[in-house]
């Protein structure tokens, strides 16, 4: 039953994948004038241009081009970097582990702290914690992540000298080093998500705590603490699951900025570099893989939602 449900949802993902990849692919159509001239620069020789046209398959009709590109993409062939000649797929997947670690920790920050603030705010209404939570939920969502990053660097790196301002150590190399290097970028990346989750979960939890079944729980002799954790939270989390999914997508998008600031060798940095180097195939590849990642996360979000809500029939 559940397997069938999974399969059905998976089939639903396919058109999304096709459309988003088509969007990514059609970036090339947006290049004004002759894309090859734009890619190679005004001084490129005619032979070089012709060779590039052939390599990119630009002589075919657009849908054929897309079909070919997609077929190759499925087989893990995203072409070669115009700038370095390195296969794009390898370049991107090689950096994916770094970005994944960063995004994962940032999501822990936003979900963990977001839940903490929302729950304490509901448990202690009109307390200091409640005001802090409300303040964060209003302010946090409006702060540019790169600015948060800089404020953190100024405070924790330059003033207190606790954590490094740049660089990244993978968890597989050195756990302590990993946490030292990942903390500031992860907080900067997760700050907005934390604010949004705090706000959303807080209002959702407040609403659920006024529900009839919570009153029933109290009438059974349940304590306030237990009524929040055992009865309110799981119901209140349902709409927030979607928010968390969106937060994941935003965090993946945000790596573009955060990895640049902290000089983290992940896919975000690769995307920025490839734009600055006019390495269009590389950019296409990075964006494609990141989008596929986002779609996978949305799919997982969907499944988690269904698992949390027994009213959804598989």
């Amino acid at each position: 039953m559940f397997f069938k449900f999974l399969l059905r949802r998976l089939i639903y993902v396919i058109p999304t994948l096709l459309i988003t990849t088509l969007v990514v692919f059609s970036f090339i159509l947006l290049i004004p004038g002759d894309p090859v001239v734009a890619l190679l620069g005004e001084n490129a020789t005619p032979e070089k241009i012709a060779q590039m046209r052939e390599q990119l398959g630009l002589n075919d009709p657009i849908l054929v081009q897309y079909g070919n590109w997609l077929l190759h993409a499925i087989h893990g062939d995203l072409g070669k970097s115009i700038f370095t000649g390195q296969p794009v797929f390898e370049a991107v997947t090689g950096r994916l582990a770094v970005t994944f670690q960063l995004v994962f920790i940032s999501m822990l920050v936003s979900v963990g702290l977001g839940m903490f603030f929302a729950i304490t705010s509901v448990y202690f209404p009109n307390s200091v914690m409640d005001y802090i939570a409300r303040f964060i939920s209003i302010l946090g969502a409006s702060l540019p992540n790169f600015w948060v990053a800089m404020l953190l660097v100024v405070f924790f790196s330059l003033t207190l000298n606790w954590l490094p301002a740049t660089g990244f150590i993978s968890i597989t190399e050195n756990t302590a080093g990993f946490f030292k290097t990942v903390l500031l970028p992860a907080i900067s990346l997760g700050a907005v998500g934390m604010a949004v989750i705090t706000r959303h979960l807080r209002s959702s939890l407040l609403e659920v705590m006024g529900a009839d079944f919570v009153r029933t729980a109290y009438s059974k002799g349940v304590s306030r603490w237990r009524s929040i954790f055992n009865h309110g939270l799981r119901n209140a989390m349902l709409p927030v699951v979607t928010t968390i999914g969106i937060g994941f997508g935003n965090a993946i998008g945000g790596t573009v900025v955060i990895e640049t600031i902290f000089a983290i060798p992940g896919t975000g940095q690769l995307a920025v570099n490839s734009i600055l180097q006019r390495d269009f195939t590389m950019l296409q590849g990075v964006v494609l893989i990141l989008i596929v990642l986002v779609i996978i996360i949305n799919f997982i979000t969907d499944i988690v939602y269904a698992l949390l809500d027994p009213r959804i029939e598989y």
Partner: peptide, 17 residues
């Protein structure tokens, strides 16, 4: 335990999850 209560609308009085 000693005093218990049942409510009007059993639709909303039980925890759905």
């Amino acid at each position: 335990n000693e005093i218990s209560m049942i409510f009007q609308d059993p639709m909303f009085s039980l925890n759905p999850v």
